[in-house]
Design a binder for these strands. Sequence first.
DNA 1: CCTACCGATCGGTAGG
DNA 2: CCTACCGATCGGTAGG
Lengths: 207, 207
Amino acid sequence: MSAPEQVKPAPADAPGGESDARNRRAELVRVSARLFRERGFDGTTIRDIADAVGMRSGSPFYHFKSKQDILAAVMEEGLNASLVATEAIVAGALAPREKFRALLRAQLETVLGEGHDFIPVLLYDWRALGPALQERIIALKDRYDQIWQQTITELRDAGMLRTDSKVARLLIMGAVNYTVQWYKPGGGVTLDELADEALAMFLHGSA
Amino acid sequence: MSAPEQVKPAPADAPGGESDARNRRAELVRVSARLFRERGFDGTTIRDIADAVGMRSGSPFYHFKSKQDILAAVMEEGLNASLVATEAIVAGALAPREKFRALLRAQLETVLGEGHDFIPVLLYDWRALGPALQERIIALKDRYDQIWQQTITELRDAGMLRTDSKVARLLIMGAVNYTVQWYKPGGGVTLDELADEALAMFLHGSA
DNA sequence: CCTACCGATCGGTAGG
DNA sequence: CCTACCGATCGGTAGG
């Protein structure tokens, strides 16, 4: 009667019953990312999500207060992971050209890699997110864009790019992000080859 | 009793009552394009469309057998218009660089220009179209892609592009099409400037 | 093209 | 997290 917590099989990783709930929440986000990517936000129902994690249709709302909140969580997790990856790249002591190649390659992985569903959801269904929820995501996106912008400035200073304008960055990132619309894994082009071709296309004096 | 057609105000442009229906159909497509662009396909209801043209909610189905058919009509009309524009460009006697610039500029107009809602709908909601309806559109899209591919080959032959690979084309078209996600009219960048910046970014030996 | 309507689906909730 | 459910919406149709 004293402690209703900590029944059922205890999780191995952390003490306290709340880690169960945290695991379930994380599972919901992961599964939702996959479904949203495959069918789109509007094409995925709460029932689809609940089925995929073995819940009843009302239960996701124990973890999230709305379907939109799941979408926001998917996008936020995707951006957080991407931020970690890109910040690790620019923290290294790479020359501008190699830094840029690493960014391109990382972004291609994020957008096209096996099991990477989070950022494609952001690219496909950004509009489906309400303005209030968009704001939180935009703050993360701004940090992300800044990393690219700085690298682009370094490339310009090194004479490998004509300009470091915002438009130049948007054209480059657009070309990369748009691959989500046409790239098919196993279609004869690897992500490494894609990165090289993009590098050669954007940069002066590249092989 | 003999002829139930040709009542109501007769249209000025063409004889025969069926041109009324054709006009209404065209109006439905045009209005749907605008709404689909603004709110997305799933975010637009048949009732929204009917309201916008002054019909009752069941009446659009007199002109189209399903909501998806309206979407297909929007995309098809957009591609047909784009095909006319691009075919006119490549039919002219322009040098490769000027031909490419004209294609870029035309595509930017198609994607970002005032009142150009058709192709953005295709870019945003391609996935919403069922496979059967996609097929008809793909045939048009193939002709479109071919024009770009040929121009890219000419640029490569003129030494202004490293490669005329399909990936090169997709990266270029991706950069241009992705502008639909970020470009804001009146934001200080004109479409002409955008075309110039894209040209300089992709081509060797450009100003 | 309107009237009148249906069947299904869907996000979300109360109460435990 | 389940049970049981609701209110609203939505694409689509019959019949004129």
